[in-house]
Amino acid sequence: MSSSTTERKLVVDRRGHFLPLSPSEVGSAGKTGSWRTERPVLSPEKCTSCYLCWLYCPDDVITMEPRGPEGNEIPVIDYEYCKGCGICVDVCPVNALSMISEEEPIEIQR
């Protein structure tokens, strides 16, 4: 268990009894990006800002941000937690996303 776990303040009731509560927080199963064998990468010039990848991502690791070539909204993926399932790639209607092996050097993906 990480140090943040042991430092966590336990929730207690008025009589001091411990309550089995856990807050909604990122990373309940750790840094799940390490589960990936492949990662989704975007070709920003192809993206039509349709939001479908965002709508279907099971891990909620996509944020739509106005960083496209024309200031349009494109998906920005949080690779710290993306599990590399590939659903975003499958649902993209214009093939703006593709999966590449995690063994490819990082520079190529930029």
């Binding site: 909604s24 927080e25 990122v26 990373g27 309940s28 199963a29 750790g30 840094k31 799940t32 589960w35 349709c50 939001y51 479908l52 709508l55 279907y56 991502c57 099971p58 891990d59 909620d60 690791v61 944020t63 739509m64 949080d78 710290e80 937690y81 599990k83 590399g84 399932c85 590939g86 659903i87």
Partner: peptide, 28 residues
């Protein structure tokens, strides 16, 4: 309109579901 849906995270990244889990898609 998909774009007008709430952007808040109703599923927290780094959860325990398998990759590609339908239950987390539905919960979002």
């Amino acid at each position: 309109n998909i774009k007008s849906l709430p952007k808040k995270k109703y599923v927290m990244p780094g959860h325990a579901a398998c990759p590609g889990c339908p239950e987390t898609i539905g919960f979002r």
